[in-house]
Design a binder for these strands. Structure first.
Lengths: 221, 221
DNA sequence: TAGTTAATTACGGCTTTCCGTAAAACGAAA
DNA sequence: TTTCGTTTTACGGAAAGCCGTAATTAACTA
């Protein structure tokens, strides 16, 4: 089993729950932090000292406060850590259950597990730790659909811009002008129509309102 | 200070944090539940036995599981309890920070305090308990704007239905038929147009997409 | 009951969006 | 350069939505 584990979560009270789970797993070397930057530094330091942290359990959302931090979200933290320390196992433990977020974390950032906070959260966390230790990945049941192929939709940055502008109340004509002003192409009304139409098909939306609504639910915008 | 307090939250680990705060306030008679229904029954029972619970601290969102519950959200719980036991003090303790939700709870359901979970959550909870004990209301700073007059918008259940149906992708014609089928009035296309138009004015939305987007951001739907 | 007011519904002209088709522009490879 | 395929743009008819006006119905009051 893991020997050295780092727990990052800005709610100290939840931290305690996680630590109790680690306790039942006989993991004694457990460190806790409340800020992303602290987590980053701890991992770096441990690696440098040749006593690397084996597992990171982190939340996604950290409330901002007075501190001026480099990394302000769990996602950023995971992204950079997994890049610089691919051998570090990462379990995300969050209330967030939007599939798109989960998908990005698992597929793009190579997280090892995603556990939803909830009534069964700590139980699932227990399972996740064991599964990850055996070099497998784990997902809470309610987000298990996140990595299934059919959710695998190609959405690029341009699409996100379109959806965002729509959600801000711009007409298609208005979006066209907005894009032109920003030197983004394509910007013709016709192209915008076509792209929106494609998105509607991809998401199975009945109309543009529905499309934007879905995009918001997925956490795309 | 309060003597008898009930804590309801489906994350047992957070419960522990709340309990520790109560502990520092020398409140010894603290009960804990993880389901809304249990909270309801406890309050009823205590009132019947003439040993009423003085303060309820509750979360808003309870993950659903196998149990078939009458009350599935903190909001429902608060609504019914405040109606049947106006003398019961209620503090909502939740990660939710959407103003509309807070506003409804404070103004409509007469909550006594709203504290956002977060880094300073337990500190603010402490303040809230003291403030409520002195018959005043308390709001976490980030939601303090919730009860300011300018946020005071009149939205009724019918409006919510309209917004919901729009977000689900129905056309105005489709909504008309939906309402007619459900024997809800008014259901004419003309009335629906008019109501949507009014909502757009109220929320300062440029078009219907914008309106639904705003409604989602506010947590109305 | 009649009169007044508000809510609901109906309608028509106008704009925006929708959707299919097709032309023009662009980029890569022969 | 020519060719082929893709992307972007253009256009036009149909549908949906927008908006002002007006008729009808409901609700309330004197």
């Amino acid at each position: 089993m893991f020997k050295k584990v780092l727990v990052a979560d800005d709610l100290l009270s939840i931290n305690q729950g996680v630590v109790s789970v680690l306790d039942t797993l006989k993991i004694t070397d457990v460190q806790e932090v409340q800020y992303c930057d602290d987590a980053y530094l701890k991992v770096k330091k441990a690696a440098q000292d040749n006593e690397p942290i084996e597992l990171l359990i982190t939340d996604l959302s950290y409330k901002k406060d007075h501190r001026n931090e480099t990394y302000t979200s769990g996602e950023e933290l995971v992204k950079v850590l997994k890049k610089e320390h691919p051998e570090l196992k990462v379990i995300v433990y969050s209330v967030e259950d939007r599939l798109q977020r989960v998908r990005t974390l698992m597929n793009k950032h190579n997280c090892n597990a995603y556990v939803c906070k909830g009534r069964r959260g700590l139980i699932e966390l227990n399972t996740a730790i064991n599964t990850v230790y055996n070099n497998d990945t784990y997902l809470s049941p309610q987000v298990a659909a996140a990595t299934s192929p059919k959710t695998n939709i190609e959405i690029d940055d341009f699409d996100i811009i379109l959806l965002k502008q729509l959600s801000l109340g711009l007409s298609q004509e208005g979006i066209s002008q907005h894009l032109q002003k920003k030197n983004l192409s394509p910007y013709s009304l016709s192209s915008i129509e076509k792209k929106i139409n494609k998105l509607k098909t991809q998401f199975g939306a009945n109309n543009t309102i529905h499309l934007v609504s879905i995009a918001k639910d997925l956490g795309l915008i």
